[in-house]
Nucleic acid binder design. Structure first.
Length: 296
DNA sequence: CCTTGAACCTGGGCGC
DNA sequence: TGCGCCCAGGTTCAAG
């Protein structure tokens, strides 16, 4: 589920509930997700006001009034939903029949404040997600964030920046783009989509997009534009909805209807004038979908 | 340094 | 109906 556009969609869904609210009580329904919760996890969060809900790469960040930040990663299958009491305060997001706790509801943030009582519930069947509490001022130096690459949104991402990091690398382009130290937030779906948009083979050596003098090639500039575009469109569409992904209001995102190559094995390449067929291959243990005809 | 592959965990889909 | 296998949005760690 959660690549950058999905996490950003979750952030926007939770923001009206969390920002300005007080996390009155935290309920852990098990001692660990991917990692054990830190011993002081609950104590550092309870009774704190959430001053801002932000995002870095695929991390959701709830900044607290005590100078700490609650860091949340959704792994492969993590999601949030809003419990009934909070829905009453903001009724547009109300959905029936979802007020019971289920087996994989692992963390409950009970809220209090002018926006009303309520709860935000974290559900994660595979438990690849994790949470931590860190000092807000030390965030960028924290091991989780220190090596993260550039955000693909906004103006920070440039072909020149990428060229610097890709030069001389023989690793397949697909693998290089999944590396969070290069670009933070890209995942399997949007890497496949961006490579198709740019007409570049996922198998091509990453360094082949950089000239000997270190300058980005025209191909790399094209790829940079497609990465920006794919991410921006996915966010505009409310994230993808592969399998079980739901937004915090319970509705499905719909970006999956627009996938050009991801999970489209055997279907004709949608690129105008291309007569190729989408293929699935494995690269470093993950599926890659691409069109061998127009991606070179 | 670089790369690949296994591991973490549950559930859904498919073939038999 | 059931069993066994493969697959899934991510990341980390070990081994070559």
């Amino acid at each position: 589920m959660p690549e950058l556009p999905e996490v950003e969609t979750v952030r926007r869904g939770l923001q009206p509930y969390l920002e300005g609210a007080v996390i009155a009580r935290v309920e852990l329904r098990r001692a660990d997700l991917r990692f054990p919760f830190p011993a002081d996890f609950v104590a550092r969060i309870e009774k704190q006001k959430v001053t801002a809900l932000s995002r870095r790469a695929k991390y959701l960040l709830a900044e607290l009034a005590n100078g700490m930040t609650l860091v949340m990663h959704l792994g492969m299958s993590g999601s949030f939903r809003i419990e009934a009491a909070a829905k009453r305060a903001l009724p547009t997001l109300y959905h029936q029949g979802e007020d019971r706790l289920t087996r994989h509801d692992h963390v409950i943030f009970h809220l209090a404040g002018e926006k009303g009582e309520g709860a935000v519930i974290y559900n994660d069947p595979r438990r690849f997600g994790f949470m931590d509490v860190i000092v807000t001022a030390e965030r960028e130096a924290h091991p989780l964030f220190r090596h993260l690459g550039v955000e693909p949104l906004g103006n920070r991402l440039s072909a020149e920046t990428l060229a610097l990091r890709l030069k001389g690398r023989k690793t397949p382009l697909k693998a290089a783009l999944l590396d969070q130290r290069l670009i933070a937030g890209l995942g399997n779906i949007y890497v496949c989509e961006a490579l198709h948009g740019a007409g570049l083979s996922p198998r091509r050596a990453a360094g082949s997009l950089v000239r000997a003098n270190g300058e980005p090639t025209a191909r790399l500039k094209r790829l940079t534009g497609h990465i920006r575009e794919v991410i921006a469109q996915a966010i505009a569409a409310g994230g993808s909805s592969l399998r079980d992904h739901r937004q915090t209001d319970g509705s499905l995102g719909y970006f999956q209807h627009q996938f050009a190559v991801y999970d489209q094995t055997g279907r004709p390449c949608p690129k105008p004038g291309c007569s190729g067929t989408i293929r699935r291959i494995a690269q470093s243990g993950r599926s890659t979908f691409y069109c061998p005809a127009c991606q070179r």
